[in-house]
Design a protein around this nucleic acid. Structure first.
Length: 872
RNA sequence: GCCGGAAUGGCGGAAUUGGUAGACGCAGCGGACUCAAAAUCCGCCGACUAAUCAUCGUAAGGGUUCGAGUCCCUUUUCCGGCACCA
């Protein structure tokens, strides 16, 4: 066996072997239990980043582990290939998104292969391939048929200079990223998917039927769906538009979960797009610019929440449905047309936002809820004003004295009697808008005809293929200038018509790719019986940042496919592992010209004091002092990324994999450390060296039973230690805490190195345990040593190691002795010792007697096998 | 702002149900080997202390318990999501 550990050579050989033997190609096998292990597919941004390496290493460890456990394991890979970055790259480099994307895919595929992942590459998919997105279109048409997809207006960010729609990401502090112009809100038509139709089912299942998901993700989804019961009611009015017709049939509808405060309504607020608001703006020229003002700024919930609440009186009044009072209507910049009815009631006394709004505009504040022992003041807001538990109605006529539920019931009854309202369940969850005014996405299969309106493309004409050669330039969707794409005959009448140029949200692509991996080659149907074999995914792995949107859309889409008869399962992912982010140190220095430059941690040296604490940092190249900014996510802007490629080339894939697994538990963030990588490499080299010494001293493994070690107490102690570590490691694998599995392999090597040189059954057994335990993490090294040392043909085919119960047995147990809960010493006791014997042993120990010092023992607590606590 | 997390030595982390805090590794210090260096191997390594004992110590403050990193309450800081980034 070769003396030096040269990862590049053995990794290449192992990958060649797996490739040649088709080791990771899988087919449906009813005889074995199936295990579908899936990592979120990457966006082909150019090259792999550490987050990818971490994600896929975790998946690969699971894949190889379950395979050795005897499962039929599928682990596929593909590309989330549509999206905005390709258009940005096109603008920067004048390269069509298609070429950029496919080049990136080719490069990143090579990178993935060099990491030795147990992937079935025959199942690779790219969402920008017409054979894939054809089925987005097909499913969309099915949804249109069923009314699950529909068309309505949506609010978008509009850049007035580029005349284009901006993504939220392209809005920086309320301005367009390229033009710097203040962004406006605009209403345009778009397609929606009725995810709300599944709201009840999505909520119930996330609450009761997803035990394999982290509690926090389930909670986030639950809050996102946001079921709330309340009252929807109307303020009657007599406001007519220019033609004399009653606006909204004389009803202004609102929804509230706090109907108990209805007597405290002192104003109402409507969205700027609400019919009453547009009516007021039309009738009153002076309010027009202000109304436009309300439409400024971004569309995100976070922006609205942080924005100062601003309003504008419309001069219009509606009637309070119970008191008959006139209530003034305001336009509020914080009210969204797409939420409920686009109007809210304002109760300043019991809603913090309304309170601030009323103070600002001098609107009356009327207390209608009281809490015993508290005094209300209109001067300052207090938490208890909104207390749902302790509050009782006051100043509210016949509601007085009622609690929240009682008052809501009563109000619903009163309103119902007048035909002005009723109890209603509402959802925070909104329908999913899928139209994007962008080029690089799945074309929405619709044709617009002057006569027949929006006509679906007939099924046999699918896919509507996206032209491959467009180059976006920032001036909107280039499809609008492609005559060969735009001009089509209407499917209904054959007259000239125009193709829809909006494309689909890329979340559409990622909402079902997991099922397509089962049958990527099927040109005739979206999914077939193979999908029913592999689905659901047994283990899904990906970033916590997808906890809500991607996972919720996928759960919805899976149900839509189920209802289409394509799948039998409702939930796509049985178990979910949300991996943490990858972080690195950040350093910068400010140049004399005031320019801030971020320095890559690899180019920085740190001076330390005698205890290893950092003192100062300088740039290696010129000794320039730099400022440490702590740690943060690896990003281009902070220049603190570590390129996986350089790492693999220097240390090999196994070192990269081992470091990533060893350094943090999968669900926590991982902090990069070049020294840590060095340490991982040193460990793998020690494993190699141990194997080389074994080959030299012992030759080939002969499978001798460790019992043959006989009464050699030292060897048996090592064996006990190894099997104890193995037991813990198996527990850790099962609970997916792989970092301690990695440290377990280090402990086993430490134990093995205590054994004397030369062959021994304990050594051979220990090494075979070590190699198998380590093989999912560093498959190349273990593949090589397993064969080379004669343990077998292929470590993939080896059985997962189990501890020998006999080796775990111990005659004597070391007990911790505490006096009144403070640890004061240890005693060794036979494992058969009972409570009294343990107490006597503890009291007899000189180190313990010192602390007891003749005091009476009031109580004795014994934890079997661990601890004796004497309370004095 | 709302929802969801996290915090343990100089650093990453360990401690399964409340039971010896700091496993394993990194960095640091000392030594062996060497002409020397690298590599490797051995020892030390929370604070306080000359050292031992003792005491203190798991973001901060309080509580429950024979016993709290772990359970409860309050606070602080950092991170993820907020519907057109993926």
């Amino acid at each position: 066996m070769q003396e030096r550990y040269v990862p590049q050579t053995i990794e290449h050989e192992a990958q060649e072997y797996w490739d040649r033997t088709g080791a990771f190609r899988v087919t449906e096998d009813p005889a074995r239990p199936k295990y579908y292990c899936l990592s979120m597919f990457p966006y082909p941004s150019g090259k792999l980043h550490m987050g990818h390496v971490r994600n896929y290493t975790i998946g690969d460890v699971l894949t190889r582990y379950y395979r050795m456990r005897g499962y039929n394991v599928l682990q596929p890979m593909g590309w989330d290939a549509f999206g905005l970055p390709a258009e940005n790259a096109a603008m920067a480099n004048k390269v069509p998104p298609a070429k950029w994307t496919y080049d990136n895919i080719a490069y990143m595929r090579k990178q993935l292969q060099s990491l030795g992942f147990a992937l079935d590459w025959q199942r690779e998919i790219a969402t920008c391939d017409p054979t894939y997105y054809k089925w987005n279109q097909w499913m969309f048409l099915k949804m249109l048929d069923k009314g699950i997809a529909y068309r309505k207006t949506q609010v978008v960010n509009w850049d007035p200079i580029d005349q284009t729609v901006l993504a939220n990401e392209q809005v920086i502090e309320g301005r367009g990223w390229r033009t710097g112009a203040p962004v406006e809100k605009r209403e345009i038509p778009g397609y929606y998917l009725k995810i709300t139709q599944y709201a009840e089912e999505l909520l119930e299942h996330v609450q009761k039927h997803l035990p394999g998901w982290p509690e926090r993700v389930r909670l986030m989804q639950e809050n996102w769906i946001g079921k709330s019961t309340g009252v929807r009611f109307a303020f009657p009015h007599d406001i007519r538009d220019a033609s004399g017709a009653l606006i909204g049939e004389g009803r202004m509808w609102v929804f509230t979960t706090r109907a108990d405060t209805i007597m405290g309504v002192t104003f109402c607020a409507v969205a700027p797009e609400h019919p009453l608001a547009t009516h007021a703006a039309a009738g009153n020229p002076s309010s027009r610019p202000s109304s436009r003002n309300a439409s400024k700024g971004g569309t995100t919930e976070a922006e609205l929440a942080l924005k100062e609440k601003e309003g504008l009186p419309t001069g219009l009044h509606v009637t309070h449905p119970l008191t008959g009072d006139k209530i003034e209507v305001w336009v509020g910049n914080y009210v969204l047309m797409s939420y409920g009815d686009g109007a809210v009631m304002g109760v300043p006394a019991h809603d913090e936002r309304d309170f601030a709004f009323a103070k600002k505009y001098g609107i009356p504040i009327r207390q209608v809820v009281g809490v015993a022992g508290e005094t209300f003041s209109t001067e300052a807001w207090a938490e208890w004003y909104a207390d749902k538990q302790r509050g009782r109605c006051v100043n509210s006529g016949q509601l007085d004295g009622l609690d929240l539920q009682g008052a809501v019931d009563k109000v619903a009854e009163l309103l119902g009697a007048r035909g002005l309202g009723e109890k209603k369940t509402t959802w925070r969850l909104r329908d999913w808008g899928i139209s994007r005014q962008r080029y690089w996405g799945t074309p929405i299969p619709i044709i617009h005809c002057d006569e027949h309106g929006a006509v679906p493309v007939p099924e046999q004409d699918l896919p509507v293929v996206l032209p491959q050669d467009c180059v976006p330039d920032g001036s909107g969707n280039p499809l609008n200038r492609r005559a060969d794409f735009l001009n089509v005959p209407c499917p209904k009448c054959g007259k000239p018509a125009r193709r829809e140029t909006d494309t689909m949200d890329t979340f559409m692509d990622s909402s079902w790719y997991f099922a397509r991996y089962a049958c990527p080659d099927n040109a005739a149907t979206m999914l077939d019986e193979r999908a029913r074999y592999w689905m659901p995914v047994d283990q899904y792995i990906g970033g916590i940042e997808h906890a809500i949107l991607h996972l919720l859309y996928s759960r919805f889409f899976t149900r839509a496919m189920r209802d289409e008869g394509l799948l039998e399962t409702s939930e796509p992912f049985t178990n979910l592992l949300t991996q943490g982010m990858v972080l690195a140190e950040m350093y910068h220095y400010d140049s004399p010209e005031g320019r801030r430059e971020w320095i890559n941690p690899a180019d920085v040296t740190v001076e330390r004091d005698a205890k290893g604490r950092p003192l100062s940092a300088r740039r290696v190249s010129d000794g320039q002092a730099v400022v440490a900014d702590g740690i943060g996510t690896m990003s281009k802007s902070k220049n603190n990324g570590v390129d996986p490629q350089a790492l693999i080339e220097q240390y090999g894939a196994d070192t990269a994999r081992f470091f990533i697994i060893f350094t943090s538990p999968p669900t926590q963030s991982l902090e990069w450390s070049d020294e840590g990588v060095d340490g991982s490499f040193r460990f793998l080299r020690r494993v190699w060296n141990f194997g080389a010494a074994f080959a030299q001293q012992c030759g080939k493994a002969d499978g001798a039973a460790p019992d043959a070690a006989g009464p050699d107490a030292a060897a048996q102690a090592v064996r006990h230690e190894i099997h104890t570590i193995l037991k813990q490691a198996n527990y850790d694998v099962q609970r997916q805490q792989f970092n301690t599995v990695a440290s377990g392999t280090m402990k086993i090597l430490n134990a093995l190195e205590k054994l004397p040189a030369g062959a021994s059954p304990v050594k051979e057994e220990g090494l075979s345990i070590l190699l198998r335990l380590l093989s999912p993490i560093t498959p190349h090294l273990c593949h090589h040593l397993w064969r080379e040392l004669g343990f077998g043909e292929d470590v993939l085919a080896a059985a997962w190691p189990e501890p020998d119960p006999a080796a775990l047995e111990q005659d004597e147990i070391e007990y911790v002795v505490q006096i009144s809960g403070k640890t004061r010493g240890n005693v060794r006791a036979p494992k058969s010792a009972d409570r009294e014997a343990l107490q006597a042993l503890a009291l007899a120990s000189p180190q313990i007697q010192k602390y007891v010092a003749g005091q009476p023992v009031r109580k004795v607590v014994v934890v079997p096998g661990r601890l004796i606590n004497l309370v004095v």
